[in-house]
Design a protein around this nucleic acid. Structure first.
Lengths: 131, 131
DNA sequence: ATGGGCCTTCCACTGGCTGGAAGGTCAAGC
DNA sequence: GCTTGACCTTCCAGCCAGTGGAAGGCCCAT
């Protein structure tokens, strides 16, 4: 399979696939003309990667997940540990953003938003160093 | 004021301040010895920037906010519009992350996490292209 | 004059791609 | 057989918002 085919079938852009080869996530063969020649396993790995990335796993986590994917002796606890760590990171991020959202919401609702310069949002920003 | 002083008083690292000068967010004077010489207004601007960045505004938004900060004829509606757009972006991000969190949570609770290889997380990732 | 703590510039690196240039390959149509 | 266009290749640059570090200059106290 050429890169265009795997790109379409895996949902991972060709550019990204080349990048993944660069950093050693996939190792397609080469045809006589120099084109990459992807096996069906490569397609599976790329779809796997696409899904893992869309779930927010880092490239490094994907690397580990891929090696576990290949490993028939793996322990599901290893997989679970990675996912739990990732989940914790996401939940932390959500909390941060919620705090941010609350602050911004307060500022926004208190700003009358007309053509006068007075603005609690600006006041907050300007008061920054004066606390 | 030297850069170390403004860094400490504004809470913005010296490295970052130099970067902000590079991209034109602040324009400190120079002393005879080539050192940057920050006025009190520069300090205010840097604290403003630090606060705006900590609220998640992009550098470009900060640039606009700074120019509004300097503008006594500004309309609070301009400030409000930027903040609202930013708030909407954050709330969108929160939704995305919550969906992600829910998916990961489901996968994690269904994984027994022992030394056997069977793992619903892996199954999900591997099923990616097979839908 | 020596040491330590400032300051300066410049370059490289981060993550995870993405865009684009310059050029080779292949299949279809004329 | 030649052209066209869609594919493929490599390599370099850029994104965002800094951060780390090297090499060297400046200033003040001892």
């Amino acid at each position: 399979m050429n890169i265009g085919d795997v790109a379409e079938r895996s949902g991972v852009p060709a550019k990204t696939i080349r990048y993944y080869e660069d950093i050693g996530l996939v190792r397609p063969l080469r045809s006589g003309n120099g084109y990459r020649d992807f096996a069906i396993e490569d397609l599976h790995k790329l779809a796997f990667l696409g899904r893992a990335r869309s779930l927010g796993f880092s490239i490094d986590e994907c690397r580990t997940l891929l090696s576990l994917y290949d490993d028939r002796e793996r322990s599901s606890s290893d997989v679970k540990a990675i996912a739990q760590k990732h989940l914790a990171r996401i939940d932390r991020k959500i909390s941060e953003l919620q705090a941010l959202s609350a602050t911004l919401h307060d500022l926004v609702v208190n700003c009358h938003g007309d053509d006068r310069p007075d603005c609690p949002i600006m006041d907050d920003l300007a008061r920054a160093g004066t606390a």
